[in-house]
């Protein structure tokens, strides 16, 4: 997206700068190691038997690599096996939480993006009374910290009897966030209207233009905002912890928090916790493999004008 800017912005370096350049590369590589090593250590710990933790402290690969920690957190072992391998014996079924997280993040990403695209389209293309005022109110909501609305929202969901249910979990984010409406409105404003006008001349109504022209033509940015929404939902912690703490609706982040609480304070089940954390990171890693370029390029939207 920004590629047409890059050659112009790339400064030419003089030959005199070479030694400085290698030093700069070394700093960059150190920054990369600091960024990524903790994740390596997470994986390394997840493959280490709990009994080895005090002795096998800093070797880069565990002396006796094992899968037992993953089996434990996925609920594939018996209570005795779990206790023997350093667990608390508490039943832990991260497979269910993984499924819940996928449904939670997926449903919110798809529905919210679609509804916000509709609203963004209306704000960008349609003329109606009070449009700018309404949009201003939406934008102001961007400034309100989530905890402020979370308290009354919890009261509302509770009074509806939706605590512990999936509809309670997804209700506040399913239809919109002010951010997505704002983002998509700005985006639609920056897209030329010629094709839509041609469709209008062919007699297509607003809905048909939106459905047949706007959505397909802007597939890229819509996927991007959908991905970002999915990532946020994936990271959500407090709301799912409050509304869906039970196993049937527990998402992965809430499961991690609850797992730590159940683990003894004095000697936490580190190998199990790291195995569980790895499970929470794998989807992120997959996302980066498939959509990494799209995600980083969404951070320099400068090319879209």
């Amino acid at each position: 997206m920004s590629s047409q800017n890059e050659p112009a912005a790339r400064p030419r370096r003089s030959a005199a700068f070479r030694p400085g350049r290698s030093a700069a590369w070394i700093v960059l590589i150190i920054a990369l190691v600091v960024t990524l090593f903790p994740f390596y250590w997470m994986v390394r710990t997840a493959f280490t038997p709990a009994a080895d933790l005090p002795s096998d402290t800093t070797s880069l690969w565990p002396h006796h690599a094992t899968l037992i920690n993953f089996e434990r957190v996925l609920g594939l072992t018996s209570t005795q096996q779990d206790l023997a391998a350093g667990g608390s014996g508490a039943t832990l079924d991260l497979l269910v939480s993984l499924r819940n997280s996928v449904i939670y993040a997926g449903l919110i990403a798809v529905a919210q993006t679609f509804f916000c695209a509709m609203a963004g389209y209306a704000f960008a293309r349609l003329r109606f009374r009070g449009r700018d005022l309404l949009f201003g109110v939406f934008v102001m909501a961007l400034m309100v910290p989530p905890i402020f609305t979370m308290l009354p929202n919890f009261a509302l969901v509770k009074s509806l009897g939706w605590i512990g249910s999936f509809q309670g979990l997804i209700a506040p984010s399913l239809l919109m966030t002010p951010f997505a409406v704002f983002f998509l409105r700005q985006f639609f404003l920056s897209v030329p209207t010629e094709v839509e006008e041609a469709a209008a001349l062919d007699g297509a109504g607003r809905w048909l233009q939106f459905w047949r022209v706007v959505l397909p033509m802007n597939r890229g940015p819509l996927i991007t905002i959908g991905l970002i929404t999915a990532v946020w939902a994936w990271k959500d912690y407090l709301w799912p912890l409050l509304v869906g703490p039970d196993q049937s609706t527990r998402v992965l982040t809430a499961a991690l928090g609850i797992f730590l609480q159940q683990s003894p304070n004095t000697a936490p089940d580190w190998t199990g916790l790291m195995a569980a954390a790895v499970l929470a990171v794998i989807p992120v890693a997959l996302l980066l493999v498939f959509f990494g370029r799209r995600l980083v390029e969404s951070l320099n939207f400068t090319g879209i004008k």
């Binding site: 990532v231 990271k235 912690y237 982040t253 991690l256 992120v284 980066l288 980083v296």
Partner: peptide, 12 residues
């Protein structure tokens, strides 16, 4: 992409 990894991981 590699520098973006920590941001994508749940805070928990």
């Amino acid at each position: 992409v590699l520098f973006l990894v920590p941001w994508l991981v749940p805070n928990v």
